[in-house]
């Protein structure tokens, strides 16, 4: 959960599929929990791609020991569909700190940020090259430099700047969340309420 972000360097888990929706990230039957048990959600991340109904492992990247790391690399439009934050809890619970894609669905992107998982949006070219690097060498490492907002494929040296607004960057680097901020604005909220016409 709350953790300070600085420079992250890790090998990656590749998921070269587009439009991975939150129903795939965590199917609805796992949404019945009433607590934020990250281990439970993490264990069931991508459950129907990862396990057969009897619980035996399927041929899926997370079951391949040649892949490891805290960076998930996914195809474009990652996290579309349901707003379930359980998807972000599952990603965090499985030990991921960064998700790299060329395009994120809006709600899921916010959910990742609110759970101290950093969504890094890269160009299609950078993503394609990264998938190729990982394919050639499963141990390919990536460096995500939050202070400088750069992401680097250490196999090829390719590097890109990524977007992160100054406020969120400050929150991530100092392990602060939005509620900490909002609770400090009560006077402004009341002032706004008193000023409304309707």
């Amino acid at each position: 959960m709350k953790q300070k972000f600085d420079i992250i360097e890790s090998s990656c888990i590749p998921l070269p599929l587009e439009n991975v929706d939150t129903d795939q990230i965590i199917p609805a039957r796992f949404l019945k929990a009433t607590t934020k048990d990250e281990k439970f959600f993490g264990d069931n991340l991508f459950c129907d791609w990862r396990y057969n109904p009897d619980g035996s492992p399927k041929d899926f990247v997370m079951n391949d020991p040649s892949y490891s790391g805290c960076i998930l690399v996914a195809g474009r439009n990652f996290g579309s569909g349901s707003s379930r934050e359980h998807a972000a809890w599952a990603i965090a619970g499985a030990g991921f700190k960064v998700v790299i894609s060329s395009f994120f669905a809006d709600i899921h992107k916010n959910n990742e940020l609110n759970n101290f998982v950093l969504p890094v949006t890269v160009s299609e070219g950078f993503l394609a090259e990264l998938f190729a690097s990982i394919d050639a060498d499963h141990g390919t490492r990536v460096r995500v430099d939050v202070p400088n907002q750069t992401v680097t494929n250490l196999a090829t040296g390719s590097s890109e700047h990524f977007e992160l607004n100054a406020y969120k960057k400050y929150c991530l680097m100092n392990a602060l969340d939005d509620i900490d901020y909002l609770l400090g604005t009560k006077d402004r909220i009341e002032e706004y309420e008193n000023s409304r016409r309707i």
């Binding site: 707003s83 934050e85 709600i107 916010n110 959910n111 609110n114 969340d177 939005d178 509620i179």
Partner: peptide, 10 residues
């Protein structure tokens, strides 16, 4: 618009 649970808490 739809939001996540952290935002519900906000």
């Amino acid at each position: 618009f739809g939001i996540g649970t952290s935002e519900v808490e906000m």
